[in-house]
Design a protein around this nucleic acid. Structure first.
Lengths: 211, 211, 211, 211
DNA sequence: CATGAATGAGAATTCATTCAT
DNA sequence: GATGAATGAATTCTCATTCAT
């Protein structure tokens, strides 16, 4: 957690610092992050950084939390507003909200993605926890689908959640990379459709009789 | 490529060096690799390393090639020996061969996995190429399935290959990590079954009528 | 150019660092200079050096500039204060001023001399430029002498400037070396007389009728 | 001195090694010489070098001696064949012979030149000795001129020798550098004329009444 | 609370020289 | 006498973190 010093800073300055950190970690994983670059970008003194945070890691996890919160502002409405939507529509909306988030805050999304493939060795636990959390969340949604009868009763829920999670992650990463290249162009619709396809494919499988 | 000096070394010593490099890069990505650790583990002089290789990168890609070759010894028989097996059985066998490889050479497998999530920013091209190659390979197999009628004719082959590749990658990583923990225990069967499940799930989808 | 960090240092410390660098490069050419020796002599941390300068070359050229400026404080008064002195008296005074400079700042003079015979292969351009500049300067002075009639009209000005420059350089180097040995002794007068002789010799030639 | 091992080598191989060393030291001063480059060029094993010579310095001075001998084959005839030529014609011929040598053996000449401006710090004595030898030689010639009346009796012989030596050295260096650039072109005559000019200038001085 | 200089361990890489075969 | 692998000290440069002002 940042030191009190940080929170006493005027909002504008706090924001500038946070943005520098996000910028850094949307390009480099934690282990490659550089205090030098961050303070330069934030235009603060080298020492100030250490008045605000214990160290690089402290700053990283603090900002990562903010990213998570931001992402939740996209997802929460969906979860809360539609309690008895078919589960599969829920997934569709969630994925689409993810795309929206990535398009509107590409740096935050990139930081999140970078985090999830963080050196599987450093801070393994934290990452693993986060991953498990996400998969469990998917799992719970699917469970609901089983209860409502939308989903075959003999489905391996864990595996389904696993596949959904990792496929969505991989597709999101690809999308972020493409957005970076074709910056500005409006590929939002395109990506949403792609996520729809992916969901459909996983729902109905590769081998399909009628659909 | 290693310098001639390296190939002039007695086999045993070459092997020791190679193993040190593999050990290093099954734990650290290229950018975090340390010559110091490698030479210590291989028990050679600091300078010797530079008699063998141009630099760390040289060593890395050389060994990565060896890993690829080794993996191919597991996959090649399957591809060659069973030309007209149903495509889906082929996948099943390939996945199982992958598990076998991971179980028998966990470090090699880890190095390969680490490579594929290599800092998405450094050497992007090489990694991306490799990934695309793998996905294209899956895609071609699926195409065959379409031709033989095993697979629905309106399937988005690219997306299917994408989902298969990344799901398999993610599961393999999890498996490798677990093997590390429960080292020695015979979880091979267990993992094979898990891969079977995954394949089945992706084949038939989450929402299944009869199966 | 040094980084701002360097100029923020207290004068005394800046001076100490500069002196260490001069000391280094009055003994070794750029290519042989050692950061290790400099930081030891200046009694600063290894890393501090790199806070002040980009690298050894940066430090070298910065200090070389200072040396040049210092030398100009000896030469400038002569050039400006005596516009219509006979050219040959000008040379005499310039040479003597050079001796004065060498006697009062032997290390600076040595550094300058070392620079001018810098590995004729590295940084050739910079050195060559400097040499040409000096010769051209001599040439222009001689030209004036031709115009005032002091100098025979058929003289090869370029060759004369060339001979003057290199003879003076060589003599200066010898003088500096001797000062080093007989350190402290007052050889100043002696050297000035020697430079006078040299000038006279080149003026009137080896084969002289009357003089 | 080289070890006996070296002299037992077949002539052709000896020659190849010598040429590699000359090539090296016509480009780099002793302190920058690299055994690695030499053995590569000579196509011998790293260890062989140390069977032939004690170390780099040993090789250097041995080959330097050969260079001196070679140069003497150009100068000796002049000294011996014309005992009562006017001293100044002798100088002219010597300088011209020097140019000839430089044109026909540019690498040897470059090595010699590089030697004479060798890090004034390393092996100072050897270089100084050589320089003094050359100047003394010039001095003795001039002395003869004094005795025959060619040269004014009040001339400062030491200074004259000094100026002659260093001017000639400097001009030779410039000539060698130009030959390197305009390789192949026949600039020999041009340079000889230039040396003639220089000699004349130093003989008759900058300020000349009639000439 | 801001500042930015100081620190020094640690990284990669080079290379003359030795020595076992 | 030839070979070339082994060695390790020495080099430059980087950077997170501390600390005095």
């Amino acid at each position: 957690m940042p030191r009190p010093t940080f929170f006493n800073l005027p909002q504008a300055k706090q924001q500038k610092v946070i943005e520098s950190i996000i910028s850094e970690f949307s390009q480099y994983p934690l282990s490659q992050g550089s205090v030098a670059r961050i303070v330069k970008k934030a235009d603060i003194a080298r020492g100030s950084f250490y008045q605000y945070f214990d160290d690089l890691e402290d700053a990283y996890y603090y900002v990562l939390g903010l990213v998570g919160e931001k992402k939740m502002t996209y997802l929460r409405p969906i979860l809360h507003a539609s309690p008895d939507l078919p589960v599969m529509d829920l997934f569709k909306r969630l994925f689409r909200a993810g795309v929206q988030f990535g398009a509107e805050h590409p740096q935050l999304a990139k930081m999140g993605a970078l985090f999830l493939q963080e050196e599987k060795r450093v801070r393994q636990e934290v990452v693993a926890e986060e991953e498990e959390g996400a998969i469990r969340f998917y799992h719970d949604l699917l469970m609901k689908g089983k209860q409502t009868g939308e989903i075959a009763s003999d489905l391996d829920l864990h595996m389904a959640a696993f596949v959904l999670f990792h496929s969505q992650m991989a597709l999101m990463e690809r999308a972020l990379k493409q957005m970076e290249w074709e910056e500005g162009s409006d590929v939002l619709q395109e990506f949403m459709t792609e996520f729809d396809h992916m969901l459909e494919l996983i729902l109905y499988g590769i081998i399909r009789r009628e659909s």
